[in-house]
């Protein structure tokens, strides 16, 4: 009898656990559905995070997040709209570049003629590194050469000695 009761309680606990799991799953599904139907609008911080990577197309070098004009306010609202539609930051940046040109981007995209800038930048960096290494090597080599010169005083002494002798000889011959 006791065994039967134990078996029953274990079974009922299993059913209860299963029902709880099912209820939790359903709750999860419905809560997700509810949040999808009523999404939170993008915050100002989210909008500005995208806006600071873009520049005002009609002002001089002013990032969109700090630009005070009405046009910039409209563009920030456009970013908010695109974010609320589920667009990614890259998609928004591409859209702005497509609409207003690459000048609205903080850095030129890696395409077309823009490659020249990146290649030239790399070339200049390589040249700068090579020149730097050579200058450092030369600076290190000079003291070594000076040391080498001081290591052989005998040769120099001998040379000057002969010069002195020659000069003395000429003076005496006068």
């Amino acid at each position: 009898m006791r065994d039967k009761l134990d078996t029953f309680s274990i079974k009922s606990f299993r059913y209860f656990a299963l029902a709880l799991l099912l209820a939790a799953s359903l709750l999860g599904i419905f809560s997700n559905r509810a949040s999808a139907q009523d999404p939170q609008p993008p915050s100002d911080d989210q909008v500005n995070a995208v806006a600071k990577e873009l520049y005002c197309p009609v002002c001089e070098n002013i990032p969109l997040d700090v630009c005070p004009t009405q046009a910039c306010a409209q563009w920030r609202e456009l970013i908010r709209l695109k974010l609320s539609q589920g667009w990614s930051e890259d998609q928004i940046r591409s859209y702005f570049a497509e609409q207003y040109g690459d000048r609205v981007l903080a850095a030129p995209p890696l395409q077309g003629f823009n490659w020249v800038f990146y290649v030239l930048l790399g070339v200049f960096v390589v040249i700068a590194v090579v020149v730097y290494i050579r200058v450092v090597r030369n600076l290190k080599a000079k003291p070594a050469a000076a040391d080498a010169a001081t290591v052989k005083p005998v040769e120099q002494d001998d040379y000057f000695k002969r010069m002195e002798e020659e000069l003395n000889r000429r003076e005496k011959s006068r």
Binding site: V116, V119, L120, V123, F124, I127, V130, R134, N138
Partner: peptide
Amino acid sequence: RSLPAWVVVLAFAALIAFLAL
């Protein structure tokens, strides 16, 4: 003549490209 030839060539190519730009 201590600079390698390729560095000189590269430097000139970069300079010409920069001027062209």
